[in-house]
Write a protein that binds this DNA or RNA. Sequence first.
RNA 1: GCGCAGGUGGCGAAGUGGUAGACGCACAGGUUUGUGGCACCUGUUUCUCGCGGGUUCGAAUCCCGUCCUGCGCCCCA
Length: 431
Amino acid sequence: MPDMRFSAPKGTHDLLPAGPDRTDWADDIDKWHWLENVFRELAVKFGYDEVRTPTFESTDLFKRAVGEGTDIVSKEMYEFTTKGGDEYTLRPEGTAPALRAFVQHRLYIERPVTKLYYISSIFRYERQQKGRYRQHHQVGVEVLGAAGPDVDAEIISLAMAFFRRLGVARLTLKVNSVGNVESRARYIQALRGYAEPFLSEMSEDNQRRFRENALRMLDSKDERDIRILSTAPKLSAFLSHEDRAHFDKLCQYLETLGVSYEHDELLVRGFDYYTRTTFEVVSPDVGAQSALAGGGRYDRLVEEIGGPPTPGIGFGLGIERALIALQAAGVKVPEPPAPRVMLCPIGQAARDACVGLLATIRRSGIAADMDYTGRKLKTMLEQADRVKAHYVVIIGDEELAQGVVQLRNQLTAEKEQRAVPLKDLSYFLTH
RNA sequence: GCGCAGGUGGCGAAGUGGUAGACGCACAGGUUUGUGGCACCUGUUUCUCGCGGGUUCGAAUCCCGUCCUGCGCCCCA
């Protein structure tokens, strides 16, 4: 091993050019480009515009938006104090920064409904595992200014369309409604009232949740907890008429869109800001960290961080997890574009000539590269084949003397080769 | 933060107390000097088994610590 004094920090990954030994898709940059391109294309088709926000924000923004009682804020944030004494945090989620930008730049003035997408890195200090990293990446969307369930249906169908485009099958979409702020608060009160007498019989985790984030008690996998809570009040019983109508309408729209879903009454999710619709896309193929995407409605969040009352909804989708699911599904990823031309000079004089020739070809808009190794022709041809060049241009002393190059088509079986005048090379490469 | 498992070359791995790295992949050179992708031959991967310490005449192998990775819990994408 070389001197490994430095390595990528725990829970982070380098993305590298594809290589014969690179078996992990999540580290292969070509796969990322492809995935990001598919997402961008789709987001644009759905009418979303990209936002890019800073990697770090005021710590208070996340405390305010995500909630002090959540795990993310209480133990997973990368917080730091600057030399000037400011408190910042590397973004642990994508929604709060996007909304902060929305409010700061008063994007609501420009149009009644704002539809944003982002592709960004997310930081959470936690024990890494397959599909869970300290720095991971998400693509996501946020729609601000529209309260109707038709928007909920749109972003859910966007997420599902994205997975379909990628070729991930075997997905389950879970949807639920946690109600508006009032009904949700009433329910939490009822749930705590119900659970209190059983508190000593419940798992330690749920005792903690009882204090900090009572809704999450429903998520417990502990058998005792599940038994105790099986007769607990149901969230659905506390929904207002409007909440219920909203949810019913969403389900109806999903059916119209041909999106199959499961109503999971226990789906509550870990952020404090959700209201009404919550949803999650899970895959059985990515290990214990099975949530590929998750999101929900947050009708009070914009106000919470200082903006005008504005309803909103969004989701985040984990790129690493999506790639793991893609690999598990055996998806074929399109080959990245190959250089069109590879110049193979024989001898120093030819190599000198290639410097200018290469620039000329590139200026005419053709992706081109040349062999810098000075190895023998046979090896250069092998190399050109390896990078999947469409054409090889062979140039040696004979060609230089005659003002021509040997142009060889690599794509046909015959590999036909002919001498073409140097000045006409660009023409031949494009026709 | 807790529990379990594991760390040998660029990669996949043999090797479980006595000269590490068989075998495969990859990479490089060659099989005559400018035409390959097959085949064959040769070579490369710096005294070294994640790192540090201990036991031993002797440690990749046993023990302790530490770091890292994987799996699970927690939480989430």
